[in-house]
Design a protein around this nucleic acid. Structure first.
Lengths: 152, 152
DNA sequence: GCACAATTTCAGTATTGCCTGAATTCATTG
DNA sequence: CAATGAATTCAGGCAATACTGAAATTGTGC
């Protein structure tokens, strides 16, 4: 891991940390974006980034559960390898749909306490959630079409 | 503030807390969505939610800076009043564009360390950011058209 | 089934960041 | 300009969480 790589990992980590993610989580993400080879063991990641084995285990699991990272099994080698999933970023955008629905739920749950004055404080949120619930799936389709076209 | 209102504030607070926001920040947001009248002073919010004056001051400023809440000056009254901005939720979606550009920057900044193998780990992010940078503005326009239509 | 290495778990420690409460500053009215 | 009340600031306490390091567990290959 040379200076430029270290710098880049730091930049990515700083960026994602701004949104509340753990430092180690973000560093692992940044490193998996640029490391070579793309597949790495937990021990290597720990060594490369100067993190403890425990931290790598925990944060790597978080990445796997989010669908950003996948495990690669190599025959004849007992070590598990991890790498950034192809389509990882797309996955993140797809999962946004769940949060959109949750927003709609929140807005609808306000029924019993809907204010007399300026009820749009709540209804605007409901409209927004409905709008995105409608628009998001076709947007994802266009996005996928756009990406597959670009990689040719 | 009756039981049902308290319950709703708690629900909203729990939801936004999941994304890393401070509890007080989220409670204030939930309360401003349903309180009557819609305009409230810092002292009232502190009293209603059982928060200290300092906390309300700090978190309310955060809301104002994000564009979610606006200050209302009432003539002949020295107390400032605060309320949820009309179009507050729309504002949040608009500001997303800034984060999209930041993502693109991150992807482009990888130039010097672009991996030989599986470079799509980085380029997919760049494509994604470019796609959303293109799609977001028209989406916002459709969204605004949709909302104004609904409120008639 | 055994041995070995990788991974996970977990108790303890460090750190971060929220919240409070009191002192200070600011703004408005008389 | 003085008085009054609201808003802000900030040091300190506290709770939540990230990280470490070592022990326990798991899973391969021989």
């Amino acid at each position: 891991m040379d200076d430029a790589q270290h710098q880049y990992v730091d930049r990515v980590a700083t960026f994602f940390t701004m949104f509340g993610s753990a430092r180690a989580w973000a560093e692992i993400l940044g490193w998996l974006m640029i490391c070579e080879p793309a597949e790495r063991t937990q021990a290597e990641i720990a060594e490369d980034l100067g993190l403890s084995a425990g931290t790598v285990s925990t944060q790597l699991r978080a990445h796997v559960q989010l669908g950003m990272v996948e495990q690669v099994r190599v025959r004849g080698d007992r070590t598990q390898r991890y790498r950034l999933r192809s389509g990882a970023w797309f996955e993140v955008m797809s999962s946004e749909l769940g949060r959109i629905h949750a927003m709609g739920e929140i807005a609808r749950a306000a029924g019993p306490v809907l204010p007399q004055v300026r009820p749009e404080r709540v209804t605007e949120l409901a409209d927004l959630a409905d709008f995105f619930a409608r628009e998001w799936p076709p947007l994802l389709e266009r996005m996928q079409a756009n990406l597959t076209k670009g990689q040719s």
